[in-house]
């Protein structure tokens, strides 16, 4: 476990700034959710934190040390499971161990133990395409956790799942998180998901993306969705997102027209 710290991070793609001046501290062992309109650079930030792409300026520190290349201390899970179709569930989970040069015997052992811990041991010898969508994503998370990372980065990990499965997966993630004790950063479009899980929610505005607000939720988990304090935060988040989406979607003239019609009075 270690603190993750974005220092003045910006990313420019071919002259177009995607995300600018991000200063963000994710306390050790905490859960942070990133929320913002589409294209504001959330994925970009995660990939920079995983050292999969370089930042144009600024840097990301883990426990005070700059992250310069992908390493076992950081793991990333995308919206699509990205499992290796040609490997069994067990070999997928053991992939990170294989790249670290760990012996086949120990890989089997450790992957098996992790699969047992997360309730997937019955599926160890199946292929990814023989699993359900929720199960694939669970395998993807298990695969990311196999090297005991200090930081777990997740980019809309449940957004391709149906509503019920997503709720189950969120509870599952909480259990895994306690188990793994990692610092988590999760991108999500689902406000309820962010409110149910996060210690802090970071709000972004669009084009170029920048942080506009950080909301702390000092409530214990599991949380009751009906909690009045959560309701307040939810309303606040919804207004912010709707405003950002409207700004991205409509021109100034259109917005003015909408305002005259009274359609955007609360934006």
């Amino acid at each position: 476990m270690a603190e993750l710290c974005f220092e003045q991070v910006s990313k420019v793609y071919a002259g177009h700034p995607a995300v600018v001046d991000v200063d963000l501290t994710v306390p050790s062992g905490s859960f942070t959710a990133l929320i913002g309109p589409s294209g504001c650079g959330k994925t970009t930030l995660l990939e920079i934190a995983a050292a999969l792409i370089p930042a144009t300026t600024g840097r990301v520190l883990l426990g005070g040390r700059p992250i310069t290349r992908p390493g076992p201390e950081t793991a990333i899970v995308f919206q699509h499971h990205n499992l290796f179709e040609w490997m069994t569930v067990q070999d997928n989970v053991a992939f990170g161990l294989r790249t670290q040069g760990i012996s086949r015997h120990e890989r089997r052992l450790r992957a098996g133990r992790l699969l047992a811990d997360v309730g997937l041991i019955d599926h160890a010898h199946k292929l990814p395409r023989e699993l359900s969508g929720g199960m694939r994503q669970r395998v993807a998370i298990a695969r990311a956790l196999v090297l005991n990372p200090q930081v777990l980065l997740m980019d809309e990990p449940f957004s391709s799942l149906d509503y019920q499965t997503r709720r189950v997966m969120q509870r599952y993630l909480l259990a895994m998180w306690h188990h793994a004790q990692a610092t988590v950063v999760m991108v999500t479009h689902d406000l309820d998901e962010a409110i149910a899980l996060a210690d802090q929610i970071v709000l972004f505005s669009g084009s170029p993306g920048r942080i506009v607000e950080t909301i702390h939720i000092p409530l214990k988990r599991p949380r009751q969705p009906e909690d009045s304090r959560l309701q307040e935060i939810r309303t606040h988040l919804r207004h912010h997102l709707e405003k950002e989406v409207a700004l991205g979607e409509f021109t100034a003239a259109e917005l003015e027209a909408l305002r005259r019609e009274g359609m955007t009075a609360d934006l």
Binding site: G71, A75, I76, F78, N82, F84, G96, T99, A144
Partner: peptide, 12 residues
């Protein structure tokens, strides 16, 4: 993303 996932798991 598949390549990125593999790289983040240490494949080079």
């Amino acid at each position: 993303e598949l390549i990125k996932t593999a790289r983040s798991l240490g494949a080079r």
